[in-house]
């Protein structure tokens, strides 16, 4: 986050529509290398769409969005370059149910990164250890708990050795007792210096790891601040209301 460093992700006046409904309105946001950004806001505010634009799962209609200097939405080659450096973790895990854990992890490295199988297997095993489930390598996803599945999904993304990790409500589909095991893995990842953008309502996690908080409502970024300022002295009314509701319990 050095001063004057070129941002790794840059949104400039980005608009996005679903039909006639505008999901993103003139979004401008910069994320520096190694920065941890937490995005929150009420449902339907466009947070997921925002991060899905970063790895090309959604295409924006106006404005410019560049990742590591590559502008998105121009051609196939640029999309491929960008998505190979961006990992993503989904709310519903989206593991491949017909493949074992280790096969889930090896597929990307073998097919997309063209690593030899043995090397890919070692890599996969290493990341399974990092998310603390090396013993589940030969099981199928359905044999694991939700928390374990999400950790496998994180490991699967990491096997692509991305420089940016996106998390789309990674703990929202989990039973409460499993949330922490996933947040612990994410915290460790944050401490390792990974550039991360997380859409989450886990405010404790946000306070712990975020360098920057972003609050969205109705497709706009309403507030953008460091966690101290964001939690203690939010400026906008909408953000105050939201924080009040979410921090109540």
């Amino acid at each position: 986050m050095g001063e004057g460093a070129e941002p790794i992700i840059r949104f400039e006046a980005v608009d996005k529509f679903f039909g006639s409904f505008q999901v993103l309105k003139k979004i401008s946001l910069e994320v520096a290398l190694g920065e941890r950004v937490v995005v929150c806001g009420p449902s339907g505010s466009g947070k997921s769409t925002l991060i899905r634009c970063i790895n090309g799962l959604e295409q924006h209609e106006a404005g410019t969005l560049s990742v590591e200097g590559t502008k998105l939405g121009q051609d196939h080659a640029s999309l491929n370059r960008v998505r190979s450096s961006v990992g993503m973790v989904f709310q519903q895990f989206n593991l491949f149910p017909h493949l074992t854990v280790i096969e889930n992890l090896m597929l990307g490295p073998v097919r997309a990164r063209k690593l030899p199988r043995e090397e890919a297997r070692d890599l996969a095993q290493r990341y399974l250890e990092r998310v603390r489930i090396p013993e589940q390598a030969d099981k199928y996803p359905r044999q694991l708990s939700g928390g374990q599945q999400q950790r496998v999904a994180i490991a699967r993304s990491l096997c692509m050795e991305p420089r940016i990790m996106l998390f789309d409500e990674p703990t929202s589909a989990l039973d409460p007792e499993m949330i922490n095991e996933v947040l612990d893995v994410m915290t460790e990842l944050a401490e390792s210096g990974m550039t991360m953008i997380c859409v989450t309502h886990e405010m404790g996690f946000a306070r712990r790891v975020a360098d920057k908080m972003v609050f969205m409502d109705h497709g706009e970024i309403v507030e953008e601040a460091g966690p101290e300022t964001f939690f203690n002295t939010p400026k906008s009314r909408r953000c105050q209301d939201f924080l009040q509701k979410i921090l109540q319990h």
Binding site: L57, R83, F90, N94, R111, A112, R113, R156, M160
Partner: peptide, 12 residues
Amino acid sequence: GQYEAAHSISLS
């Protein structure tokens, strides 16, 4: 979600 996961690990 299966397509999206495949997309995010750069599969063709």
